[in-house]
């Protein structure tokens, strides 16, 4: 079995000097916490995870992109304030802004030692121009198509990927359709179905 993630994070930091590794908790009953690694050291960390004899994560099962939009979380806190000369408890909302980013999640297993999963994540700086992470294809060849898919559908650029082209969408397609703010184009071949016709007619016919 693999050691608890914080121990593993320490070991990684010892093995790869300068690496930033952070444990990302997971509240669901699945209990699959993950490690957030920084892109600059991701390749070295991946190589360590694969080659270290007690870990030997030789199999990258799954690579998935995730899009996190900019979010604002409002937390209400009670603050003591002096209102009209009298101290009162007043509720105040604190807004925490978190800029959006794209995330690439790798699920690693070991075929030799038959353990796993170890989940590592890489994050981009933001959702626009800072969209680069390190490609792990030179450690796990199995990431080849999956990283291409993440590039295609999310627009994450993988530094070091030898053949980063679109894979599911056609060449020349502009946007990244799995992003949360993707708007479907309305220029697709449109066929008037009777359903829509009925819908329109019904709306006219049966005003609310």
């Amino acid at each position: 079995m693999i050691a608890p993630l914080d121990t593993l994070a320490r070991r990684i930091q010892e093995a790869v000097p300068g690496a930033r590794v952070e444990v990302v908790p997971n509240d669901s009953p699945a209990a699959q916490p993950s490690l957030l690694v920084d892109s600059a050291h991701a390749l070295a960390i991946a190589r360590f995870l694969r080659d270290e004899p007690s870990l030997r994560f030789d199999y990258a099962s799954n690579v998935a992109g995730v899009d996190w939009l900019d979010s604002v979380t409002k937390t209400k806190t009670k603050v003591k304030k002096i209102v009209d000369g009298v101290e009162k408890e007043v509720e105040e909302t604190v807004e925490t802004k978190r800029p959006g980013y794209l995330e690439v999640v790798y699920h690693l297993y070991s075929m030799n030692l038959k353990h796993g999963p170890l989940i590592i994540r890489q994050r981009t700086g933001n959702r626009a121009e800072l969209n680069r992470v390190a490609s792990l294809i030179s450690v796990w060849r199995g990431c080849e198509f999956q990283e291409r898919e993440v590039y295609d559908l999310y627009g994450v650029v993988f530094d070091g990927h030898p053949d980063l082209r679109r894979i599911l969408m056609w060449e020349g397609f502009k946007d990244h359709p799995m992003r949360k703010d993707y708007v479907q184009p309305d220029d697709f071949e449109y066929e008037p179905t009777p359903h829509d016709e009925v819908l329109g007619r019904a709306k006219e016919h049966y005003p609310k």
Binding site: N26, D27, S28, P29, A30, Q32, S61, N62, P117, I119
Partner: peptide
């Protein structure tokens, strides 16, 4: 509505 979190099943 499962509560927030993530899971990988295979």
């Amino acid at each position: 509505r499962p509560k927030a979190g993530e899971a990988y099943g295979r």
